[in-house]
Simulated assay, not measured.
Amino acid sequence: MHARQTRAFRVARLAAAPKRTPETDRSLGILLAGIAGSLNVGGFLLLSQYTSHMTGHLSNIAGSLVFTNLMMLLDSLAAIGGFVTGAAVSAAMIAWGQTRSARLCYALPLGVQGALLAALPLMTALPDRAEHRMAIVIVCFVMGLQNATITRISGARIRTSHATGLITDMGIEIGRSLYHAAKPRAEVPYDGGKLWLYVQLVAAFIVGGVLGAIGHGMIGWAFAMPPGLMLITLAVWSPRHRTAFRGGKAVA
């Protein structure tokens, strides 16, 4: 038990380190999926919309143009603009970090995400309409920033801010595994490790959503502070440690 705890501690310590292993990618992905689930449910409770659902916002734009609903149009444009800007900022920060200071390349976007989450409660000081619009932009910016960061870190194997792709990939691996079980001689490739990863990410999103529904429902945006401070800690802590590799696993 102690060895398992020590190993988990090492992986957590290297979550934002510049050198990656599948284990550190998995751990960071699960953490971010939980945060995304919490923030997405919080956005629905406090803003009446899912803040990572860009497909829905594109549909809202089309509908608002037909039915001339200006407020819906502005909200959806703000959401998509925030998400795209967050993804672009993440890519720019990672590129800057890789070319100038590799030890910070992944810590920078995680730290910015954490700072924005921790600062979300400050929006309650704004007038209601300004708070609503600003919250949409900031939360969607965080979602885009997070999704682009984990996509770059994992080589596009992991996405966390929305589950449609995860569930699709899960279904693909389930289908392959079932076909392999029925016809093992057909040599249809499947990856049980990928399937387990997708199951963990979806489960983390759901658990995060449950906690977000409870926490955001009770104390509003203040519930975003603990995960924000957690990400800031990882961003400051992880790059300070070097990663060694033994048997494909991270060792500090």
Rank of each mutant, 00 (worst) to 15 (best):
3 A>E: 08
4 R>Q: 10
7 R>C: 04
7 R>Q: 09
10 R>H: 14
11 V>K: 05
13 R>F: 08
15 A>D: 08
19 K>F: 08
20 R>L: 15
21 T>I: 04
22 P>S: 08
24 T>D: 12
30 I>F: 11
33 A>L: 12
34 G>Q: 04
34 G>S: 11
39 L>C: 14
40 N>F: 03
42 G>N: 09
43 G>W: 05
45 L>V: 02
45 L>F: 02
47 L>V: 05
49 Q>D: 01
53 H>S: 03
54 M>H: 11
55 T>Y: 12
60 N>E: 03
61 I>T: 04
62 A>V: 03
62 A>F: 02
63 G>W: 01
64 S>A: 07
65 L>E: 05
66 V>T: 07
67 F>M: 00
72 M>I: 01
82 G>E: 01
85 T>C: 12
85 T>K: 03
100 R>T: 05
101 S>Q: 12
102 A>C: 07
103 R>I: 00
104 L>F: 14
104 L>G: 09
106 Y>W: 11
106 Y>S: 06
106 Y>E: 09
107 A>N: 05
108 L>S: 10
110 L>A: 07
110 L>D: 07
111 G>I: 14
111 G>R: 14
111 G>M: 13
112 V>A: 02
115 A>E: 00
123 M>S: 08
131 E>V: 09
131 E>C: 14
133 R>N: 05
140 C>F: 06
141 F>E: 06
141 F>D: 08
142 V>E: 03
142 V>Q: 04
143 M>I: 07
144 G>D: 07
145 L>P: 14
146 Q>S: 13
148 A>V: 06
148 A>Y: 06
151 T>A: 11
151 T>I: 01
152 R>K: 04
153 I>M: 12
155 G>F: 06
157 R>G: 03
157 R>Q: 09
157 R>L: 10
158 I>D: 00
162 H>A: 13
165 G>N: 10
165 G>V: 05
165 G>K: 08
166 L>F: 08
169 D>H: 08
169 D>G: 11
171 G>D: 10
172 I>P: 11
175 G>H: 04
176 R>T: 00
177 S>R: 04
178 L>K: 02
184 P>D: 05
187 E>N: 15
191 D>A: 05
192 G>I: 03
193 G>M: 06
194 K>W: 04
197 L>M: 15
197 L>R: 14
198 Y>Q: 04
198 Y>E: 01
200 Q>S: 09
206 I>V: 15
206 I>R: 07
207 V>C: 12
208 G>S: 06
209 G>W: 11
209 G>M: 10
210 V>K: 01
211 L>P: 00
213 A>S: 15
214 I>W: 14
214 I>L: 15
217 G>M: 09
220 G>Q: 09
220 G>N: 12
221 W>G: 13
222 A>V: 13
223 F>D: 10
225 M>D: 03
225 M>H: 03
230 M>E: 10
231 L>D: 01
234 L>E: 06
235 A>Y: 15
237 W>F: 15
237 W>G: 13
242 R>K: 11
242 R>D: 12
244 A>Y: 09
246 R>H: 15
247 G>K: 13
248 G>M: 12
249 K>R: 13
250 A>K: 07
250 A>C: 06
250 A>Y: 06
252 A>I: 04
